[in-house]
Amino acid sequence: MVWGAAVALVVMAFACLWRTNAGPTLEDRILAVNVVGTKALITLVLLASIGGHGFLIDAAIVYGLLNFIITIAATRLIETGRLRGGTTS
């Protein structure tokens, strides 16, 4: 059952990759990458549950944090053209 969920999630992640290729705007692509990241995170936790590998959950936490930070940094870069400095408005 858990295996089925993991396989379904991998298939969905590949389906989301289509949007990264087709998205008309840059933001579409970033959103799609973010969604793929969320699905990969859940897949990692499912794999950890199947095999009993606790370290995969640590990898999932790092994955989630990176996913969040990358998206915020990318939107900020698009919006202001720079990464350093004070907050906007």
């Binding site: 705007t25 933001e27 973010n34 998206t71 915020i72 939107t75 900020r76």
Partner: peptide, 11 residues
């Protein structure tokens, strides 16, 4: 929700 809002605001 935070990433969705950030992306929507950026766009």
């Amino acid at each position: 929700p935070t990433t969705a809002h950030a992306l929507a605001r950026c766009a």
